[in-house]
């Protein structure tokens, strides 16, 4: 699947400008890329989060496609209902089948924590939809609280840095593997700097016969503490340090999409953001060592799963 920007760039964005996300926010970069890949006709559901709040402050909406939001936890249930209603109406001959596509955009809080059982349920029931997790690794919308996607050692307002704790004291959970374990047709991890990879994954996901899941890292300049222009650079660095790996699981088969060469040390990643600045102090070296060991462990595990040596 070769993607070229020439034909895509003349298409109209399905997300209108004038939304209130921070300058340099990666969420709309990802949403624009995915909506260009998926195309109309599409129905989008969002759970509560930065994207939902910033694209729909009354009386405005940035969505040029049908869009639905009901609560924090239940975007997967909402899209299940929409998809089932559509199928039922088509089956009864009440509407014509126009090949409608269904997409969910939700944050990491809604995906990793609050909505987990709802997504799991929707995937088990086998609804045909694409679930995109916009993973900025904390509850950024409410002011940077830790989530189960927040990495080990990161500062947030609820994982403070001080004498007692060096930031978050738990590792993040591997939600992508959890959804891969649902044995759905397509699961992937992606990043906005690799737009060709991300967009081709979105195309594959939407073509899959069943639920699909894409976990996308979205650098957050407010929560991660960096200059707004560095968003794409950080996305690239996350992949090069193996903090975030690009892979896909197609019908149970794991495939690695990018092998960083050279694999950069995790300290390069820590140096780039204010949320990790405390880890650069000599007294916190042991925390960095634990983090590096975990990154290496996950990377080795991924290589084994993808049968890459």
């Amino acid at each position: 699947m070769v993607l070229n920007l020439e034909p895509i760039s003349v298409e109209r964005d399905l997300l209108a400008p004038g939304h209130r996300l921070c300058a340099g926010c990666a969420e709309t970069i990802v949403v624009r890329q995915i909506l260009h890949a998926v195309g109309e006709p599409v129905i989008v559901a969002s759970s509560t989060g930065c994207l939902e709040v910033a694209t729909s402050p009354y009386p405005y909406t940035s969505w040029r496609v049908p869009w639905i939001h009901s609560a924090f936890e239940n975007a997967a249930s909402t899209i299940s209902g929409v998809e089932t209603m559509y199928r039922a109406l088509v089956k009864r001959g009440k509407i014509e089948d126009k090949g409608l596509k269904f997409v969910v955009f939700a944050g990491d809080g809604a995906t990793y924590d609050i909505g987990l059982q709802f997504i799991s349920g929707a995937m088990e029931r086998g609804h045909r939809f694409l679930y995109v997790c916009l993973n900025n690794e904390a509850y950024m919308n409410t002011g940077i609280q830790r989530s189960s996607a927040t990495p080990f050692g990161a500062w947030t307002t609820t994982s403070p840095v001080g004498k007692e704790t060096p930031g978050k004291t738990q590792h993040r959970k591997d939600i992508t593997a959890i959804f891969a374990a649902h044995n759905i047709p397509f699961v992937a991890q992606a990043a906005p700097h690799a737009w060709r990879d991300l967009m081709s994954k979105a195309k594959k996901a939407i073509a899959a016969d069943g639920p699909s899941f894409i976990n996308v890292i979205v650098p957050c300049q407010r929560g991660w503490r960096y200059a707004p222009g560095d968003t794409i650079e950080l996305s690239r660095l996350a992949v090069d340090t193996c903090v975030w790996s690009l892979y896909e699981v197609v019908d149970g088969e794991w495939r690695l999409n990018y092998y960083p060469n050279p694999k950069k040390p995790v300290t390069d990643w820590l140096k780039s953001q204010g949320r990790f600045q405390h880890l650069l102090k000599p007294e916190n070296k042991h925390v960095v060592d634990i983090l590096q060991a975990e990154v290496d462990r996950q990377w080795t595990k991924l290589l084994e799963r993808c049968k890459v040596s």
Binding site: V10, A16, C22, A23, C25, T28, I29, I232
Partner: peptide, 26 residues
């Protein structure tokens, strides 16, 4: 492809600068 605000103007298939109404200057 990287603009978060869709503010890069494309005219006749070519990049034609920035839409200052929406560019947040990131």
């Amino acid at each position: 492809i990287y603009c978060p605000d869709g503010s890069i103007r494309i005219r006749d298939g070519a990049v034609a600068g920035i839409d200052l109404d929406y560019c947040k200057g990131c």
